[in-house]
Design a protein around this nucleic acid. Structure first.
Length: 645
RNA sequence: GCCGUUGUAGCUCAGUCGGUAGAGCGCGUCCUUGGUAAGGACGAGGUCACCAGUUCAAUCCUGGUCAACGGCUCCA
């Protein structure tokens, strides 16, 4: 009998008989390792533990300490789910069941949709099967025989998958005596390894993600190595629910969506209006500081403009239907670029005038299919902090640096310290789906990379993800509870300058085409507002808070002094309100706390007497009495510093 | 747009196996003048999302419409 050489992660080498599996290796190292083992990594590829090694191998045993094992573990749980479904509902046909970021989903085809009660039953059945310690067994089957077999099993989607992607022979996995699934694997050895999962929801999903295909029933489940991890995740879901900007928006009376007005259209209430004004004022001021010009462009423009820009053609399904006026068709704008281009094109530009940076908080309207709207995050009318930069090739790198620096400044100002950058590039021109000359793509992509280098930003490059009109860099921020949100985007556009025949007069006295960069930092003011609400859970830093100080007189007798305090604060530019209700101070404090007012000023006889205010901070609690002017100095400094206490 | 769930007072919800509804909070009036997260009493407030149908009778059953929610797809 021949032998194999196994190299372990610590570099040690062992001779083992052929036919040895990773599990055998684990056992020879330690029974505890063998017990904890979920899957193996053999020569860099994931292997079922009990699959015999075929050649000299580097073997690593993966346990619940290894993130890579989690995916396998979740995938195995997906199989367990499918097995449970087939036991309960034998007529169900299997789709696919991959692991996802927090668990898995499995798609099923079935005449009757699953009900929430079914979900409970399926989960119970999963635990029942889990307790039987059923093993996952890998087996090989020839493609022809396999197709025959899955046809006989009447699993049309599996048959299709085998036809399209199976090797010959291909692998399939059984779970217990009943369940079998065409699957690449690997899997954990048996169901006893599966410790913590919960089915979360049922949803419709199209076969292969294409809405022309049949709609399947998708079951989502979350899966973790331990009950503790599962509970942590479920808590995180709860936390996210508490922070939901739609819920907080209602509680704090920030905004609403009105059925009478239509879905996806946002009404900012007075309190939301103040916050929005802070965002917009900050952004407009930043534009001017950074050498942008502020412009305003119309909300409806002749459709001819959109024909020239190309939107009438390639963007039509996202646009509101044109409106017929007496002279022509008009189009509600879905983007600001053509408007800015018309301003640029209205006069001649010397290279000495470049770069031209035109910025606008431009409200655009896009048709979103019903069923896709989501609070402030996905709407039909929204305001972009949109700017277009027209410049020479020599200027482009500095311009990108400026944009990214601006984007980071924006993030930091609004309390986000963590972010990620992604550069989306083209495919090198192979497919012909990208517009613009190769040298421009190279120049632009180079500028994006160099700008990141200069700013010390580590950017991930995603090939073949660019827009057809140019490469881009996106900034994603990480919020207070670790979620990633797409925010700023800086995009090249090679198409529009050509369509509008933009030019500038260069040093050589000849006409050249400027480069155009489209950039939005908030992305959409509405969306950014929503993200901020969730990030701060409604407890905005003082400079953003709709009410910065609530003045709370204890009795009627302090009413007058409370009014005086409020006046002084307002005169200092602080948004202060008196709570003059005939209520106990406890109640007033509670209400101000629930409204997340940063400072509460309790005013009793002693304070009125001494010209003081008793300060309570929403997070730090009772800070004791201090002279009014001292408090004014503290709060105005905090507001000016935009700090978050 | 598609699949599923949901729509009852300003808010959060209960309820009616068909006989036009209830709580808490909020709101109004009054009592209470109370020192760091809910003082008390009384009261007002609902065409039970909208439109049809079935029925002696519909908030409840049936059909449709609209919207919201969870997803699919797409995106700022």
């Amino acid at each position: 009998m021949s032998s194999l050489q196994v190299t372990l992660p610590d570099g040690s080498v062992r001779q083992v008989p052929s036919g040895t599996s990773a599990f055998d290796v684990a056992q020879s190292i330690s029974p505890r390792l063998a017990d904890a083992a979920l899957v193996a990594k053999v020569n860099g590829r994931l292997y079922d533990l009990k699959r015999p090694l075929e050649e000299d191998s580097a073997v690593q045993i993966l346990t619940p300490k290894d993130e890579e094992a989690l995916e396998v573990y979740r995938h195995s749980t997906a199989h367990l789910c499918a097995a449970a479904v087939l036991e309960l509902f034998p007529e169900t046909k299997l789709g696919i069941g991959p692991p996802i970021e927090t668990g898995f989903y499995y798609d099923f085809d079935r005449p009757e949709p699953f009900t929430p009660q079914d979900l409970e039953k399926i989960e119970a059945k999963m635990w029942e099967l889990q307790a039987k310690n059923l093993t996952f067994e890998r087996q090989l089957i020839g493609k022809a025989a396999g197709l025959e077999k899955y046809r006989a099993m009447d699993e049309p989607m599996k048959v299709q998958l085998i036809e399209e992607k199976a090797d010959d022979p291909f692998t399939e996995y059984t779970l217990g005596p009943q369940f079998i699934d065409f699957c690449r694997g690997p899997h954990v050895p048996d169901t006893s390894k599966i410790k913590a999962f919960k089915l979360l929801s049922i949803a419709g999903a199209y076969w292969k993600g294409d809405e022309k295909n049949k709609q399947l029933q998708r079951i989502y489940g979350t899966v973790w190595f331990t009950k503790k991890d599962l509970d942590e995740y479920l808590n995180k879901l709860e936390e996210a629910k508490k922070r939901d900007h739609r819920k907080i928006g209602k509680e704090l009376d920030l905004f609403s969506i009105q059925e009478l007005a239509g879905p996806g259209l946002i009404f900012f209430h007075p309190k939301g209006g103040i916050i929005r004004k802070q965002l917009e004022d900050w952004m407009r001021d930043a534009y001017l500081k950074r050498g942008y010009s502020l412009v305003y462009t119309p909300h409806v423009m002749r459709r001819d403009l959109w024909k020239t820009s190309g939107h009438a053609n390639f963007y039509s399904e996202n646009m509101f239907t044109p409106m017929e006026l007496d002279d022509a068709e008009y189009q509600l704008k879905p983007m600001n670029c053509p408007g800015h281009i018309l301003i640029y094109a209205d006069g001649q530009h010397s290279y000495r005038d470049l770069p031209v940076r035109l910025g606008e908080l431009g409200t655009v309207y896009r048709y979103e299919r019903s069923g896709t709207m989501h609070g402030l995050l996905r709407v039909r009318g929204f305001t972009q902090d949109d700017a277009h930069i027209f410049c020479t090739p020599e200027q482009i790198e500095d311009e990108i640096v400026n944009c990214l620096d601006f984007a980071i400044d924006t993030l930091k100002t609004f309390g986000f310290s963590e972010y990620k950058a992604e550069i989306s590039t083209w495919d090198g021109g192979a497919s012909g789906k990208y517009d613009g000359e190769p040298d421009k793509w190279e120049l632009a992509e180079g500028a994006l990379r160099k700008a990141c280098d200069r700013l010390g930003i580590k950017a991930t490059v995603i090939p073949d993800e660019a827009a057809f009109y140019g490469p881009k860099i996106d900034m994603k921020l990480v919020d207070a509870i670790g979620r990633l949100w797409q925010l700023s985007t800086v995009q090249f556009d090679f198409t529009l300058p050509r369509r509008f025949e933009l030019e500038y007069i260069a040093e050589d006295g000849k006409k050249h085409r400027p480069l155009m960069v489209h950039r939005a930092l908030f992305g959409s003011v509405e969306r950014f507002f929503g993200i901020l609400v969730e990030h701060y859970a409604g407890a905005f830093p003082a400079w953003l808070a709709p009410v910065q100080a609530a003045v709370l007189p204890i009795t009627d007798k302090q009413q007058q002094y409370a009014e005086h305090v409020t006046h002084v604060l307002k005169a200092a530019g602080v948004r202060a309100v008196v709570d003059g209700r005939n209520e106990k101070v406890n109640l007033k404090i509670r209400d101000a706390q629930l409204q997340k007012v940063p400072y509460m000023l309790v005013i009793g006889g002693r304070e009125a007497e001494a010209g003081k205010v008793a300060v309570r901070h929403r997070k730090r609690g009772d800070l004791g009495p201090i002279p009014l002017d001292e408090f004014v100095a503290i709060i105005t400094a905090e507001i000016a510093a935009k700090s978050d206490n």
